[in-house]
């Protein structure tokens, strides 16, 4: 997957490049808004990571211009500002996703990967190792044992299973499972994950739900 990273802050750009490259993405970096537009129009990128504050041309206007020229490349917006509601402004301008700074790199990688997955229809039956989840019958089971999950726990498990093998950041979990657009500043996610882990991992091997310190959680079959 080819990704264009538009970010003028050199250190941030280099961190993002290395994190994405480590996950097998092909990365081009562009520090200026006007140059980035030329590159985005000319190149064949599968996704664009776009900072809002840029020299040359700001991210939102770049995005609008790109859409006006008929390019549908999915865009993940980054922002440290937040003067007006940039999340809403960004999504209205045609961004697929929005990540406020300071972000967790693993979260950024997970979201860039999700950019490429947008078109796929979601599966109704999910499986990770011997854990299965049926979104139609609202049933989760492992090794013949059906779990008694609350609605929230079910959504959390479904989200982690849909992203299985990838790190899910706390903020993505908060957005996807709780539908909050703010960081609640509590350890709500950690407490829920702990309870979910007690249900799906206690008494089973291997342990599927793992903590990635400082980054989030990952559900995966192989250790």
């Amino acid at each position: 997957m080819r990704v264009l990273v538009v970010e003028d802050e050199i250190k941030t750009a280099s961190l993002v490049r290395h994190a994405l490259e480590a996950e097998g993405f092909l990365v081009s970096v562009c520090p200026r808004g006007d140059d980035a537009l030329t590159a985005a129009v000319a190149g064949t990128f599968d996704g664009i990571v776009l900072d809002i504050m840029l020299p040359g041309r700001d991210g939102l206007s770049l995005l609008r211009e790109l859409r006006a020229q008929g390019h549908a490349t999915p865009v993940l917006l980054l922002s440290a500002r937040g003067k007006v509601d940039e999340r809403i402004a960004g999504l209205n301008a045609g961004a697929a996703d929005y990540l406020p700074k300071p972000f967790v790199l693993a979260e950024l990688v997970a979201r860039v990967r999700a950019l490429g997955r947008r078109a796929e229809a979601p599966a109704t039956e999910l499986r990770v190792a011997d854990l299965t989840l049926d979104t139609i019958f609202h049933r989760a089971q492992r090794g013949g044992k059906v779990f008694d999950l609350t609605a929230r726990e079910f959504r959390l498990l479904e989200y982690l299973m849909r992203c299985s093998g990838q790190i899910c950041g706390r903020m993505s979990i908060i957005e996807q499972v709780w539908d909050y657009d703010f960081d609640p500043g509590t350890n709500l996610v950690d407490v829920y994950v702990r309870r979910l882990r007690e249900k799906i991992d206690d008494g089973f091997e291997p342990k599927l739900l793992q903590t990635v310190r400082g980054a989030g959680y990952v559900l995966k079959a192989a250790p």
Partner: peptide
């Protein structure tokens, strides 16, 4: 609070990379 965000992003990224 805005100015603090860029160095925080870098710090967090560097540490994450070091841990990874």
């Amino acid at each position: 609070s805005h100015e603090l965000k860029t160095p925080l992003t870098i710090l967090r990224g560097e540490l994450e990379t070091a841990l990874r």
